[in-house]
Amino acid sequence: MKALSPDLAAHLASGATTLCWCWRVVRRDGVVLGFTDHDRALTFDGTTYEAASGFTASDITDGLGLSVDNLEVTGALSSATLTDDDLAAGRYDDARIEIYRTNWADTSQRVLMRSGSIGEVRRTGTGFTAELRGLAHYLQQPKGRLLQLTCDADLGDARCMVDLSSPAFHGEGAITAAHSARRFTVSGIDGFENGLFSRGLFSFTSGASAGLKVEVKSHAKLASSVTIELWAEAEGPVAGDTFVVTAGCDKRFATCKARFANTINFRGFPSIPGNQFLTQVGRKS
């Protein structure tokens, strides 16, 4: 049951209400955005809620127990703060969201209806649909360790302990040619072996995408050039944009041993039998 302030309770009991919905979004990079379905902008708690034309939401679904409550928000990319490039770059993935029922005539009269995070985002032309998931969905994420051949640590974390700031696993450079929003020819990392940065982290330090961090899909060292391809699109990359990139790992024991000399901290189980062992049939010799 929601706890309403006396003023809001009196407003609801009056029979003539001036209510609207307000959405507060906090992206993982710390950017805070506000949207409302009212016809003018509202401000409270230091956040301005922009009037978003064509911004609509489905009914909120409630369930008993620990089932995931969710709704969908549909809108057009008409806001100057909500861009196609940001959606494509994943800046809204798992962003925290708060949904308020607000008296637009007096914004001090409001109640927090839901809090959660943004799940799947689908884009169609100049529009988008974002799934808003309740907090219960975090309880459905795998916890603990899995019995598997590959390592379950993240390269460079406290369990792995590889120092990614080491010059052997850390490079800086600049884009010399942008072939697309994901694929570039770069300079500054020519001295590293082919594929070292595949599955690594590419961080822009200048340009329109400054501060954006994207996983590397492939790192190819050719005879006269080095190319980097990312898993997600960057925002308007151009020649001259600078970056920092760190090594990647395919989580295999052989790579841990040969590339990082870190087998003592390998967090997989390389000696467990595979499916072939489980399904083999005994035969008479």
Rank of each mutant, 00 (worst) to 15 (best):
I228F: 02
A210Y: 00
A210Q: 12
L196M: 03
G200P: 09
S206W: 03
K257C: 03
K257S: 11
V214G: 01
V281T: 13
A254V: 11
F269A: 14
A239P: 01
A210R: 06
G240R: 02
K221E: 10
P270M: 04
T242G: 06
E229D: 10
V214H: 00
A234W: 00
V244E: 14
R259G: 00
K217C: 02
E229F: 02
G240H: 05
S198E: 04
A220M: 08
A210M: 06
C249I: 00
A208K: 05
F202C: 05
A239G: 10
A232L: 15
L230R: 04
G248I: 05
L222K: 06
A247Y: 09
D250T: 08
T227V: 07
F204E: 07
L230P: 06
K284N: 10
R283W: 09
A208Q: 08
D241E: 06
A261P: 00
I272V: 05
D241L: 01
H219Y: 11
D250C: 09
F204Y: 14
G274H: 06
R267G: 01
N275D: 11
S209R: 01
F197A: 11
E235H: 12
V214W: 02
K221I: 15
A208D: 15
Q280H: 12
G211Y: 09
G268N: 09
S218L: 11
F197R: 11
T255E: 15
A208I: 01
R267M: 06
V245C: 06
P273T: 12
T242Q: 13
R259D: 05
C256K: 03
T227L: 03
V226Q: 03
P237W: 02
K284V: 15
G207A: 05
F277I: 02
T242F: 08
F266S: 02
Q276T: 13
F204H: 08
V245L: 02
T263P: 03
I272D: 00
R283K: 14
R283H: 12
S203A: 14
F277D: 11
W231A: 08
F260S: 11
T205A: 01
S206G: 04
K213S: 14
V238A: 14
G282F: 12
K257I: 07
P273H: 08
W231Q: 12
Q276W: 10
K251E: 13
C249Y: 02
W231C: 11
V281M: 12
E233W: 04
F202D: 00
A210E: 14
T227H: 04
R283L: 13
G207V: 03
V216R: 00
P237K: 10
A223Y: 01
A234T: 03
A261G: 09
F266G: 01
E235Q: 13
D250Y: 06
E235R: 14
Q276S: 13
N265D: 11
K284G: 05
D241K: 03
A220L: 12
G240N: 04
G240A: 06
T279A: 12
A220D: 15
G200F: 11
E233Q: 14
F260M: 12
A232F: 08
R267L: 03
V281R: 15
V245G: 11
E233C: 06
R259L: 12
T205K: 04
I228M: 04
N275F: 10
G236F: 08
A208S: 15
T246K: 12
S271W: 08
A254K: 12
G207W: 01
E235K: 14
A220E: 15
D241W: 04
V244F: 00
N275G: 09
S224R: 05
V244A: 09
K251R: 15
V226T: 15
E215D: 09
V281D: 04
